[in-house]
């Protein structure tokens, strides 16, 4: 193991980690937004839009991120839509993550018994108030484990970004191996940097899970 090599190329990994995190965070934020809206549409059974959302969820969950990225990065320019590689990464992550997040939130929303909604409505609360004060807090608590699993899953999925020429951690390691043939050092740094990024996320996840554990109705 050459520590000199590790020291010399550490900044390259740092840049890659920043890129991975940047695209990861923005992409996941959009994924949460898409997921939340999709879950609400499904929960309230909004006609027509519900169908579209269901189609989107099946399309997005049953195609690999790599294929989606190829479509966005190499396919879209053919019909005149030319996006920067980083934006493609964000769009791809939001497209894939949106459906996973939607399913996580839906599982939370559906775990709340209808009787709570009916009771609240009969007490004179508006539909918005029912969602805001009764259903949402409980649903979120139920969704957190699935939600955190999705966040970690999506962060790890960023490792396919190399196929659209984004210098993420995975591509940096592959590139260094190809350039200088230092396999052991490159892979060592790769594992370390993924751990540095993902361990705090897992820890944050379990913290969040405990904080949000409201007592649900009836248990």
């Amino acid at each position: 193991m050459s520590w000199e090599f590790i020291g010399k190329y550490m900044p390259m990994y740092q840049r890659a980690a920043v890129l991975t995190l940047k695209i990861g965070i923005i992409g996941i934020a959009f994924a949460i937004l898409v997921g939340l809206m999709s879950a609400l549409v499904l929960y309230y059974k909004v006609p027509v839009i519900k169908r579209i959302i269901k189609m989107y969820i099946e399309l997005s969950r049953n195609t690999p991120l790599l294929v989606q990225l190829f479509f966005i990065y190499y396919g879209f320019p053919k019909i005149g839509i030319r996006l920067d590689a980083e934006i493609c990464g964000v769009v791809g992550l939001a497209f894939l993550g949106g459906s996973y997040m939607a399913e996580a939130f839906r599982s939370g929303l559906e775990s709340i018994d209808k009787i709570q909604e009916e009771s609240a409505l009969s007490l004179g609360m508006t539909r918005f108030q029912v969602m805001r004060y009764i259903i949402f807090p409980q649903a979120i608590a139920t969704s957190v484990p699935a939600f955190m699993a999705n966040v970690i899953f999506l962060l790890k999925e960023t490792s396919v970004f190399s196929s659209i020429s984004l210098m993420d951690l995975m591509f940096t390691a592959k590139d260094l191996i190809g350039l200088y043939y230092k396999t052991t050092e490159s892979l060592f740094m790769l594992v370390m940097f993924y751990l540095i990024i993902l361990l705090p996320v897992s820890l944050l996840g379990s913290l969040l899970e405990r904080r949000l554990r409201y007592a649900g109705f009836g248990n």
Binding site: F171, K174, D175, I177, G178, L179
Partner: peptide, 8 residues
């Protein structure tokens, strides 16, 4: 292309 002589 990553890993080619052109890159080096």
């Amino acid at each position: 292309i990553s890993g080619t002589t052109a890159e080096t």
